[in-house]
Write a protein that binds this DNA or RNA. Structure first.
Lengths: 154, 154
DNA sequence: GACAAATCGGATGTCGTGGTCCTAATATCC
DNA sequence: GGATATTAGGACCACGACATCCGATTTGTC
């Protein structure tokens, strides 16, 4: 339902939100903590700096931090840059003139679903999600076994 | 939301449903009528014969026809072979232990959306959709410009 | 100034979906 | 039986998502 990049973005920014007090976080740090591919995550973070959600600092003590408080960041903003084409879903039946006077039987329920999806993302802030998105590395700080590579996850 | 193959499948079987009285339809005929790429549509129809939704006949007077009345075919069946991985959407936040005692704030609304999507497809039959899915070639029979090849070279 | 650590950013590789092309198998019509 | 029309099915190409690699650039520390 979401692209993987979008999911990574939500999780990374959640970590930024939780650790906000500690200044900025390095990409490698975030990737390690969440078990994500570091190089790929770096690219995602760069795209998020381009959209203005986070700002970055280069060099020795560099890293990423949220540009706004997490309470003011909707998940939709986080997800949007990686979810191109989600909004432009045409009618299931391929109509051009579907939404006008004669909507297909699927049109209304599908539209409702799309709108529900949109509203959930628009109505949930990063602050609401962040605590849960971060504290799932197991009860203690010992590394659990759910981050093993085994990349073949269909 | 649906793969393109799934959408083509729905439209093609809708045409089969509407024209059911006329025996079987050739793939090229369906593709021409709906403005779909004929070779690709043929592949889709073959997959649908493999799942048992339609049966095919080879040779001179060959073609495809529905194996069951359209009233008994749920859209979910049509869409399923092309929608692999739709059901297995994990938690947005990457949890493994999310659905147990501690669901993330996104979990419930996302689950609801997924279920709504599923229920719409499972609760709508081909017969309900078919008439609309077919009669959308525009007011006249003039070919719109959405089928230009331009794929061209080499 | 030299070094190290970090982001920036392009090149490349892999995989699944969408799509085309060509040959084989099969059925009908003459 | 042969020409023809159709499905069957593999090989191939294009493109975007996912991911890695490597060099360039910036910045702090010695």
């Amino acid at each position: 339902m979401l692209t993987r990049s979008a999911e990574y973005a939500v999780r990374a920014l959640s970590l930024l939100a939780v650790r906000q007090g500690a200044g900025s976080l390095r990409a490698a740090e975030i990737a390690d903590e969440l078990g994500l591919p570091p190089q790929f995550l770096t690219k995602i973070l760069r795209r998020l700096t381009a959209t203005g959600l986070v700002s970055s600092q280069r060099g020795r003590a560099g890293g990423f931090r949220l540009d706004r408080p997490a309470e003011e960041i909707a998940l939709l903003e986080v997800v949007e840059p990686f979810q191109e084409g989600m909004e432009g879903v045409e009618c299931l039946l391929g109509q051009r003139n579907c939404s006008d006077r004669a909507a297909c039987p699927l049109h209304e329920p599908m539209e409702k679903i799309r709108r529900a999806f949109h509203d959930v993302l628009a109505g949930t802030t990063l602050a609401e999600v962040a605590p849960r998105a971060v504290r799932n590395r197991g009860p203690s700080s010992t590394r659990p076994m759910h981050a093993l590579p085994s990349r073949g996850d269909r």
